[in-house]
Write a protein that binds this DNA or RNA. Structure first.
Length: 197
DNA sequence: CCCTGATTCGC
DNA sequence: GCGAATCAGG
């Protein structure tokens, strides 16, 4: 795969949105996150203001081992960073008028969509249920964006409220959920039948 | 161990 | 220009 214009376009877009290099790599396909990062640097767009593993433009005066001399006498001029972007768009927040303010009003948000299929309690084995309640306290409470292929994607709470998050614990390899949630998500047909009245 | 981005350097 | 290997950190 090579960096065609449209692929670079996607790269720019996603990077701008704060997507991680690995996510971009997956989206594009045929490239590794290293390739993405390398391209990002070559394109000049680098330092984002993203939290997490942000780098420090810190001169590491670390006396490392031998194989890393690296003189680099060039002093970076850093003139005026003119936003010579040919893309005039960018979302300009309309600055929505604050909804007066919601006193102690307990969310009037209408759940526009059906809630995720939270299994009804009577179909879950007591053991599994107990286990879930147990680990749910330890849940990492990830947002949608923070989910990866190795984080439990079990939704908790009402998506229409602020009180909503994903479990985020390490998944049972091969499954989309952690061990506890796999227990309530994947049940043998026979077990369900038996528990039904 | 999982992940993140940064840098180097042979190609 | 490209990106694997490596580095550095959360």
């Amino acid at each position: 795969m090579s960096w065609t214009d449209d692929r670079v376009e996607i790269l720019k877009k996603m990077w701008g949105e704060g997507q991680s290099a690995s996510q971009i790599a997956k989206e594009l396909g045929g490239v590794t996150r290293n390739a993405v990062i390398g391209k990002v640097h070559r394109l000049g767009l680098s330092n984002r203001t993203t939290a997490g593993a942000a780098a420090k433009a810190e001169p590491k005066a670390k006396a490392k081992a031998a194989p890393k001399p690296k003189p680099a006498p060039k002093a970076a001029p850093e003139p005026a960073p003119t936003p010579a972007s040919s893309k005039p768009d960018l979302k300009t927040e309309p600055a929505i008028a604050p909804q007066h303010n919601m006193p102690a009003r307990k969310q009037i948000i209408p759940a526009g969509q059906p809630l995720p299929p939270q299994p009804s309690a009577n179909e879950i084995s007591p053991e599994a249920l107990a286990k879930v309640n147990e680990i749910e306290k330890k849940a990492k409470k990830l947002s949608l964006m923070e989910l990866t292929e190795r984080t439990c994607k079990w939704p908790v709470g009402d998506p229409a409220t602020e009180d909503f998050w994903f479990c985020g614990l390490p998944v049972k390899t091969g499954k989309p959920y952690c061990e506890a949630h796999v227990g309530v998500a994947f049940q043998p047909m026979s077990a369900r039948r038996d528990r039904r009245r």
